[in-house]
Design a binder for these strands. Structure first.
Lengths: 137, 137
DNA sequence: ATAAATGCAAAACCTTTGCACGCCT
DNA sequence: AGGCGTGCAAAGGTTTTGCATTTAT
């Protein structure tokens, strides 16, 4: 909890209870929640926090590169506090989003940059399918 | 033009001037336009066509697997008539979206499936950077 | 003390929907 | 003739914005 506040301060962000709550939640989940989901799950502990604050905070965290925004193809964005570039797996049955930690994509950005003459900064990689759990059903 | 109508009919879609115009445009551009962009660029030739028809048509084409929907991180979707799975390059300076035809990602889906026990159907891969043109400026 | 963050409401924006009319088969 | 597509307007959902108040530094 403490370190969450430190991270915010280190990025020059004002440390508020709302920001701590949102960032702390994102750091301790594997769920890749949307703004709405974050808002609802913090209702119990922070009943006065507004949805607008969630959006504003996510924007601040995004600009500070403390979270990344995901576009899995739903109508809203999802957020991930693991900012290191990594692919995501989306289960089309249960709609869960999983992190994929792999070295399969090692050097990929560099190779693509060489192929295309682009100067590349980042990539977003999404795989769509059925997760092991849902395959059993 | 003719073949566009054939493709629609082959998928069991009713062939209308609006559908031909939209699909024809998507087949003959490299721009990855949004619904709004499609609508505007067809205003001259099809002034009575509504934006709702563009959306409904894109939905039909998507379901028929004649176009794919892209999520590059903007607030609206873009569309691509090249439905074969391929990565996209987004220039953060001029906002153009480029197709990347490469074999760098050969076997990638299969390897990820093996690593994760997912049953995979598709993937979306986006690289972000600065295109060669914009680097010169 | 100052500047910034919050909360509320309203607005903006993209997309979808309902329905009457017209067109394709 | 029947069903589907179109066009219009309205609604829906997500995200942004303006502004007065509160809070962090």
């Amino acid at each position: 909890m403490k370190e969450v506040a430190e991270l915010l301060k280190a990025k020059g962000l004002k440390v508020t209870p709302q920001r701590i709550a949102i960032f702390h939640m994102l750091c301790n989940t594997v769920e890749h929640p949307s703004a709405e989901t974050i808002y609802k799950s913090l209702q119990e502990t922070h009943p006065t926090m507004s949805l607008a604050t969630v959006y504003k905070t996510l924007d601040a965290l995004k600009k500070a590169e403390l979270v990344q925004e995901l576009n899995v193809g739903e109508d809203s964005f999802r957020y991930d506090a693991k900012v290191h570039s990594h692919p995501h797996l989306i289960c089309l049955s249960c709609n869960h989003v999983y992190d994929l930690h792999t070295d399969l994509l090692q050097d990929l950005r560099e190779k693509v940059a060489q192929d295309t003459d682009f100067e590349l900064f980042s990539e977003k990689i999404y795989f769509y399918g059925i997760c092991p759990e849902c395959q059993k059903k």
